[in-house]
Simulated assay, not measured.
Amino acid sequence: MSFGDQNNPYGAPQQAPGYGYPQQPQGAQPGQPYAAYPQGQGGYAGAPQGPQVMPGVTKAARIMLYAIAAVHVIVAGLCVAAVAAISDAKKTHGGGSVTTAQGDTVDADTVFDAGKGVFAFLAALAVIFAILGIILAVRYAKGGNGVRVGSIVYAAFGIISGLVCIIFYGIGILGLILSILVIVFAAKQASNEWFRRPRF
Rank of each mutant, 00 (worst) to 15 (best):
V147E: 12
G94M: 11
G158C: 08
R62T: 01
V127W: 00
G133N: 01
A16R: 13
Q32R: 09
P48Y: 09
Y169V: 12
L176K: 00
A36T: 10
D113K: 07
G43V: 12
I167V: 13
V118G: 03
A85K: 12
G143H: 10
Q24N: 10
S151C: 11
I173S: 02
L136C: 02
Q49M: 12
A108F: 14
G143R: 09
G94W: 08
T105R: 08
D107W: 09
L132Q: 00
A45P: 00
Y169G: 01
N145E: 15
P38T: 14
Q49F: 04
R62Y: 06
D5N: 15
Q14H: 13
G143P: 11
Y19R: 13
G56N: 05
V147R: 07
L78I: 01
Y21W: 01
A130H: 02
A69T: 01
N145S: 14
T92Q: 14
P17Y: 12
H72E: 14
I63N: 06
A85N: 08
V127L: 10
F119R: 08
G11M: 08
I183R: 01
L178S: 02
L132P: 02
K142V: 04
P38E: 15
P38D: 15
P25Y: 11
Q49S: 15
I152A: 00
G18Q: 08
M54H: 04
G31C: 09
T58I: 05
I68D: 07
I152S: 00
G175F: 03
L125T: 06
M64G: 00
W194C: 10
L176A: 06
T99S: 07
A120R: 08
R199G: 01
R197Q: 11
F112M: 12
R199N: 11
I134S: 02
A124E: 10
V149R: 14
I131Q: 09
G175M: 07
T99L: 09
L122C: 07
K91F: 04
A187G: 11
G43T: 09
V149L: 15
F157M: 13
A76M: 06
N145W: 05
A28W: 09
G11S: 15
Y37Q: 15
V71R: 03
G95M: 04
A76C: 04
I160Y: 03
S87C: 01
P51H: 07
V80E: 14
R148T: 11
A76P: 02
I177S: 02
V182R: 04
G11Q: 05
A47K: 06
G103I: 02
A130V: 05
F168M: 08
G143W: 08
G117F: 08
F119N: 12
G143E: 09
P22Y: 06
C165M: 08
H93T: 11
G133F: 02
G96D: 06
V149A: 13
G94E: 11
Q102E: 10
V182E: 01
A126S: 15
L136T: 03
D109V: 12
A70Q: 13
Q29F: 12
G103M: 05
Y66T: 06
Y37K: 14
M1D: 13
S151M: 10
I128D: 07
P13C: 05
L122A: 13
P9S: 12
G94Y: 09
Q15M: 09
